[in-house]
Design a protein around this nucleic acid. Structure first.
Lengths: 242, 242
DNA sequence: ACCTGAACACCGTTCAAGT
DNA sequence: ACCTGAACACCGTTCAAGT
């Protein structure tokens, strides 16, 4: 073992603090790229939610400043679009089976819902966005295939293809808000909300009072989701018959 | 008529610029209050949308600094809650008529939808919020009355009371995003979107290509809203029979 | 009690300059 | 072409201080 080695004359000297030479920040060797930016952003989103996902945080995670991101991405909006498209592309939609189109439709919407739960905050980012990315378009095309196999009129298919993902997105958004509050404030939040509902004057709000048990905060959020999904698909099927 | 009046010796002198006396900002005599703040905020929201609604803008509109608002409102979140509750309170819900509960339910949801269109941006602020204000609770109670008159099981009533306003909110939100883009970018935006859909390779996206006419951007947003509402109410009625 | 100026700790984005 | 430091024009909220 060598405890003392003679100094290598070619070894780079440390930069003295009075040097005016620009210090190259040691970005752990991965060069900046769209994919690297999306990776970093997804990691922040999953770990800390949409509010923590700022251009500055992403830049810091990649070892640079926020301005550097703009060489690869036009702005935050495009970054969110890329995140959404990546998740949309992961969606698996089976080949149409005309006999079981309703169950296939439900499975597809359940898949979207679960994706949003897995990436909290993405539902909020997705609301109000018209899908244009290749991943989303592919998934939509496959989903349209299932609806068409159900023998529904084209206009019903088109409306349903908007309506069902809107439901999954909106519901997942609500759910993620609720989950966030729960994780921050714990059981106390749900208890306080329940107590509030029960404390409402029954004379002034007779129907709320009568249904307080059923209205109570989240007995099972997935049961509620299934209720809405069931109602929607049943209703859409009826529209097709009309 | 008097063109020249002798100066009033008691009249306040203008404050000279070199004075160190604090200049009282001339807030046009309406004192700060919760209501005044909500009024100012609503005016900004209606005129310029949710993004323009900042604590600083509200303060400026009232002739003060942002810090002054915090004496009357705990923060921006509470201000949004107050805006939502005011609009919710304006909702008119009729006494239940068991024979026509489905049409009454639809009218109620149409009312929410129209309110959100009238106050663009409020739909976004409403998403993910659990109503607790007196105005919202009153409207919810009335709405529950209509659903109960339909003879639905209590659990279906409770689920439906969540699901239907969620639909109105999410749809209005989408619609307001679209309207905003249209007002900014005009016809060009819709034309570009249509052109994009039509330019997609039919071999790769066969179903989108086949339905391009029906999927086209907003032939009539209200028809689409009515389709979803119809499907939902039909589905909910079916759930009640199950 | 109500209001304020000033500050704190952030944002997204731009731009001239460096390599 | 890619990256950067520094700045611009904002945010919501806090807090000591004034009246």
């Amino acid at each position: 073992m060598v405890f003392v080695s003679s100094p290598d004359p070619d070894a780079a000297l440390p930069i003295p603090p009075w040097s005016s030479r620009r210090r190259r920040p040691a970005r752990d060797r991965t060069p900046l790229s769209r994919d690297a930016i999306v990776d970093a952003a997804m990691a922040i989103l999953d770990a800390e939610g949409l509010d923590a996902l700022t251009m500055r945080r992403v830049a810091t995670a990649l070892g640079t400043g926020p301005a550097s991101l703009y060489a690869h991405v036009t702005g935050k909006d495009e970054l969110l679009e890329l995140l959404i498209d990546r998740v949309a592309a992961e969606q698996e939609v089976p080949d149409p089976d005309p006999e079981h189109w309703q169950e296939q439709v439900k499975d597809g919407i359940r898949g979207i819902y679960r994706s949003f739960l897995a990436h909290p905050g993405l539902a909020r980012a997705n609301l109000g966005r018209i899908p244009t990315g290749p991943g989303a378009l592919h998934t939509i095309d496959r989903f349209l295939g299932i609806l068409r196999a159900g023998g529904l009129p084209d206009q019903v298919v088109a409306f349903a293809a908007d309506l069902l993902p809107l439901y999954a997105t909106a519901y997942a958004f609500e759910q993620s808000i609720f989950a966030e509050r729960m994780s921050q404030e714990g059981e106390r939040y749900m208890a306080e909300l329940d107590a509030y509902w029960k404390s409402l004057p029954a004379a002034r709000f007779p129907n709320i009072a009568a249904l307080s048990g059923e209205l109570m905060a989240e007995p099972d959020p997935d049961a509620r989701f299934e209720f809405g999904l069931d109602a929607l698909v049943t209703g859409i099927a009826a529209m097709g018959r009309r």
